[in-house]
Design a protein around this nucleic acid. Structure first.
Lengths: 205, 205
DNA sequence: GCTATTTTGTAATAATCACTAAAAAATTGT
DNA sequence: ACAATTTTTTAGTGATTATTACAAAATAGC
């Protein structure tokens, strides 16, 4: 009899959050479909029935891991991006931070949102919808910040904001693929430093 | 007894090249692993033993389809890119052509090289190596053309060619993901038109 | 027509997939 | 100690996977 904080039955023998982090790592490295439930269980240190009791099923586990990933890795960079008053600095810093995340020494896998659910069988539509939604959210983040830069007079009023946001988004997504292809972080950062140039040239601002 | 052009045994009842094109379409739309041999057979109009007799196995069929794709869709744009004397025109035209290919009305799937074999189980290493090799080849194409622009005096001598080539490559790869995410071709072209800006600004040239 | 050769369709193979039925084990409250 | 409840482990489920054994069919050369 421990305390009464936990429910009645037999207590869970694993830490749910630790297990989720382990699952995240497997999904991140291998992608949704190549990550078998057996491999997930092995990495999480639990058996299949525990996984299903705690997380529902494979796709629900993936989506929960995906949200955890987004929160853990990208919420602060996004905040800094939106908080930086100068649009050029904001873009430059964000892409340098991104290059660090995409090839951080412990998880050199590119971005999970971009890469983990590209080749997906048609049944798992909820999964591909989840990553798609997050990719659109990133593009919207770019668009919102650019729009503010127009209002601030830092970008020309006739700038094509949707196209520019899309271009920044494409560049960011492409960095993920090259991260996965195994280049050095220094190279990725050198590429990322060019993101700034996608903005209309300073003369026009 | 037809002619003696064909071998001795029972003649093949299908056109090998047509079957390859059908397989290409399935791999392109679905990706390597979600494309089951059964689905491939169905699209190709043949049974599994015919597939294995003609193409070896699934991975060999994919690689052959991949090479066919590269040749059929990208060899001419690449030639034009390398043949255009003005670097700015070369980049601008190439990315507009790319946007058209990525969302051509009959195959609105993004680029097969970029998207078809991202989530791959570790056994099919030959497949992921094949697409990786082609992605590197594209980056090298950018680097070679940019290097020539330096020699031509169209780019500053101190330009960081590898980083610039990587940036163009990242942008191109990112366009594929957005193409897959279902935007309109007009939007994709508007984004693609910004590729030009990744080059060092005209003042520095 | 006969033999050799290759392709065909049918049907099966073993392996792996996501998922779960069932019973034992561990807790809480009485 | 006992009942109620939840998690654990074990061992399966049926479906799907890529691949192939086998025999019938169709050709060429003799």
């Amino acid at each position: 009899m421990r305390s009464s904080l936990q429910g009645k039955g037999r207590p869970r023998a694993f830490d749910r959050n630790e297990a989720l982090e382990k699952a995240l790592e497997v999904f991140w490295r291998q992608g949704y479909e190549p990550a078998s439930v057996a491999a997930l269980c092995s990495a999480m240190g639990i058996n299949a029935p525990s996984l299903y009791a705690s997380f529902g099923n494979k796709s629900a586990l993936f989506i929960e891991a995906l949200d955890y990933y987004e929160q853990a890795y990208w919420s602060k960079p996004a905040e800094r991006f939106l908080g930086e008053p100068d649009i050029a600095r904001a873009v430059e810093n964000f892409f340098l931070e991104a290059a660090e995340i995409l090839l951080s020494p412990d998880t050199p896998c590119g971005c999970m949102v971009v890469l983990a659910a590209i080749n997906i069988s048609s049944e798992a539509r909820e999964v591909s919808e989840a990553v798609r939604r997050l990719r659109f959210a990133t593009k919207k983040m770019f668009a919102d910040r650019l729009q503010r830069a127009v209002l601030d007079g830092q970008l020309a009023a006739d700038a094509d904001i949707p196209a520019l946001a899309g271009a920044l988004n494409a560049f960011l997504e492409g960095l993920s693929i090259q991260a996965r292809d195994g280049i050095l972080q220094a190279e990725l950062k050198a590429m990322a430093s060019h993101a700034l140039r996608l903005l209309p040239s300073p003369e026009a601002r």
